[in-house]
């Protein structure tokens, strides 16, 4: 192979760099986060359930939020009828955060664990960080 050794060294380096997240995390264990549901608003709920079943919320809340965003902002339809027939205001700030007023112990814990940083909070205010 022409310049064989150089090519192999380069390939090796490339492989190392690409796989660096695996090496850095090797041997460490990160436990799944415990989400805190202890907020005043939730404590007052007679029937402690979210808008949709927990599994759906856990897996699809981002799609739901995007749907809300488009229907409220673009279609002017500011209400959402859940699968059990209850109607909610389609609003992250006024519906979701009313119950989940503890963003850092609810939203952030899971997002940090999953290493995702949704850019909701550059505009939407969370009750904890209201001082700005």
């Amino acid at each position: 192979m022409y310049n064989g050794s150089k090519v192999l060294v380069g390939l090796g380096l490339f492989f190392l760099i690409v796989t660096v997240p695996f090496w850095l995390g090797f041997g460490t264990e990160e436990l799944a986060p415990e989400l805190d549901l202890d907020t005043p608003a939730i404590a007052q709920l007679a029937d402690k359930k979210c808008i949709e079943p927990t599994g759906v919320m856990r897996e699809e809340h981002m799609q739901l939020l995007e749907q809300w965003r488009d229907q409220a902002v673009r279609m002017g339809n500011r209400y959402y009828e859940a699968s059990d027939g209850t109607v909610y205001q389609a609003s992250l700030q006024n519906t979701c955060l009313d119950c989940h007023s503890n963003k850092s112990d609810f939203c952030d814990r899971c997002h940090d664990y999953g290493k995702v940083s949704p850019d909701c909070w550059t505009c939407h205010l969370d009750p904890e960080g209201m001082e700005l």
Binding site: Q93, N94, T122, C123, H124, L125, P127, M130, L132
Partner: peptide, 17 residues
Amino acid sequence: PRPFIDKANPSYPTREK
């Protein structure tokens, strides 16, 4: 814009840079 908002209305978003 946030440093220029004295008192925020919690039920409405701000905008961003």
